[in-house]
Design a protein around this nucleic acid. Structure first.
Lengths: 229, 229
DNA sequence: TTGGACAAGGTTGTATACAATCCTGTCGCC
DNA sequence: GGCGACAGGATTGTATACAACCTTGTCCAA
């Protein structure tokens, strides 16, 4: 129910979810090594289960699996970052339009709750948690559009965006998403598909603008790159 | 190189690829049970490796993993079928436009090769192989557009479409894709983005039209459904 | 001093063993 | 005869053991 994933829930899914949340909230930095033994000890399961969880996250591009080396929190390249937001630009605006046409009062309430949580987290200084709520806002819109397949893609893209923000966000940019989210919410509540689509498009462009995709990542992918040749 | 998947290749990837191909070519019918022991015996590996492959395919929605029950070739519902083609409608037309703007003569040649293979397979009566080539045509366009992230999504959607066709294709529909593909190829060769986008949109609509998404699946998901209450 | 070869330690890759769960056929009872 | 409980067999879920590989530190030779 919570996850929407088709089949049954196993311990591996549970662990994958916890790790995904930690990555999403920036508690695990890009590049962090995820040792199988260590994770097994933490969660009280064997490496078998941990490996299943890691494989899953690898497929979602949240971690990178390198053969005989282990698992690392992913470090999207600048190119990947651009691609992720181009994919979002393809999917989310028209999904927002569909959502506007279908949104019920209960849906609007759920969206408002995410905005509230985002505000609260930001006030409390939990930027990671605020980002998480912001991501849930986007996923909720996809869910309202009643397109599970697209929603799944968007969920994955949102998660990867969190990694991208961790690497490329330039602090001077405001990243005050709740403003844009509030405008979107209003459009959805008014069932104004045109405006919702346009707002989402602009919101995604703003997001990309708040990134610095010209310079090197703030936590560089390789020492060679970091130290300049 | 062949797969484009980021990291290294293991035996599990190999097996997953072979199974995916078999599903894509309709050599494995929707609903078929995939026993771990059996697959392990076939490919000469232990269940550990088989399980990794199955997990991967499960995430691509090509198979369904049911806890304590095993793995089965997926049987997309009518709803899922619609969603998959709606997602494709969101992604592929604009990707075709990008591809038209970037296509090189070598790209065109590769696309032509897929069309030729599709023809040859169809003439030889290998409908499954023809369908596979048709899918590769779509994936190749995504690759030409130079959007790896979107291309990955499209690849997954194309694979799922193959399952959908296996379940819902109505024989009376021609499904002569090579015609539409040839027109697309011409638009791409002419760098005519507008036409490519429009052609792809129409092609996808034709595809949906060739399906029967009103009736029950030809290989029904459950006996209860098949025998009517 | 510098360079490569080598060995020790640790981590991942795979196979196997055991436990838990499900399916199915049979038996007993109503 | 029909229905429910139960047991046997089979399959999956998980843990553990061993093999393969990478990393890294040390040693020796140039």
């Amino acid at each position: 129910m919570e996850n929407g994933h088709a089949t049954t829930h196993g311990p591996a899914e549970e662990i994958a979810g916890r790790l995904a949340l930690a990555i999403h909230e920036h508690r695990l930095a890009p590049g962090t090594k995820l040792s199988e033994d260590e994770l097994g000890a933490i969660y009280g399961v064997s490496r078998t289960v941990v490996r299943a969880a890691l494989q899953r996250l690898s497929h979602e591009r949240l971690i990178t699996l390198r053969r005989n080396r282990g698992a690392f929190v992913a470090q999207p390249t600048i190119r990947e970052a651009r691609e992720v937001f181009e994919a979002r630009a393809l999917l989310e605006p028209r999904t927002a339009r569909s959502a506007a046409e279908r949104a019920t009062p209960a849906d609007i309430a759920r969206l408002q709750a995410h905005i509230d949580e985002e505000h609260r987290a930001m006030s409390a200084g939990h930027a990671g948690l605020a980002l998480r709520q912001s991501g849930l806002f986007h996923q909720e819109i996809a869910r309202i559009a009643d397109q599970a397949t697209v929603a799944e893609f968007i969920g994955q893209l949102v998660a990867r965006s969190s990694l991208i923000i961790a690497l490329y966000w330039q602090r001077r940019a405001a990243l005050c998403e709740s403003h844009a989210h509030h405008a979107l919410l209003t459009a959805l509540a008014d069932h104004d598909g045109d405006r919702a689509e346009e707002l989402m498009k602009g919101h995604l462009l703003d997001l990309v603008s708040s990134l610095d995709l010209r310079s090197l990542p703030s936590a560089p992918r390789s020492l060679r790159e970091a130290l300049g040749a």
